[in-house]
Amino acid sequence: MADRPQPQRAQDKLAFLLSLVPYLMDHDRVSVTEVAEHFGVPAEQIRDAVRLIGVSGIPGETAMYQHGDLFDIAWDDFEDNDQIVLTNMVAIDDSPRFSAREAAALIAGLQYLSALPEHSDRTAIATLMSKLSRGASAVPSPVAVEASESDETLALARESVERGVQLEFDYLNSRGESEHRLVDPLRVESVDADWYLRGWCHLREAVRTFRLDRISSPRITEKPIAHGATDVTLPDTLFEGSADDLTVTIDIAAGAVALLADYIPEGAERTDVGDRVRTSIRVSHYHGLKRLMAGMSGVATVVAPPEARAVVAEWAAAGAARYSSRP
């Protein structure tokens, strides 16, 4: 997933400077390009930071920031050859500790990943967590995530992505139809407790997202994938929009809008109707919509078009009828 470039705040720039200095101390001579690659930042950001480090230091005994109290770099090498060589160092000896919240974020992330097939070595994860705790400047914040469930389908999906071979399986769509699919697996993704496989579907001849819990009888083939991650664009959002999508107007409780964030197209109009918000969502067909709406009873209602309302009403009524026809 592409990292969105974020505007850097002074605090982030400070964290970067404190991280960069020890790295440079460990490397007698290193090119700007190499450092930029290692930290995953633009080369110009490295140059800016080095220029600042090169003139920074401590007030020193004279309180005048004299030469020996400052960092120094081989300026000619830097300006002419884009090479970084620290020639004088002050104050800093080693990398900074993690903050309590930084350590907590990584620990909680590890907890989530800990049950996945490739992390069967639980002691390795526990060791890593305790290292993070010891490497933090205060006790990590109490934030925890339940380990994600893993099953055979997930393991096979992961393996097929890694090996670059096609995966075939039976897939039950939201219309309730089961179809045999042959897929070029591109990426395994999750959102909280739900797992998805994204890939090129040979049946639909398009990129599709499959819920792993709708997949039955998965089997890894020996056929190499026909479409790689570089041949197709995987949209950042999990649900790829298509020109055939249907737009539906809904009223939804203001506090629940976030629950449907994935379905609300960018720039969709939102108006207040009493304590509800009227907006629109995009769905690929009404079979998905009826399930979505029946799961948000009393919270969201379809306003238009009438066909969509009818499909939802029929679905819910059929469900309710099962309770009247049997004791």
Partner: peptide, 20 residues
Amino acid sequence: KLRSLGVTTTEPVLGYAPRV
């Protein structure tokens, strides 16, 4: 901060995007 230690990763994890 981790990168500050200079360790290079074994492989970039492509094709895998777990998210909370």
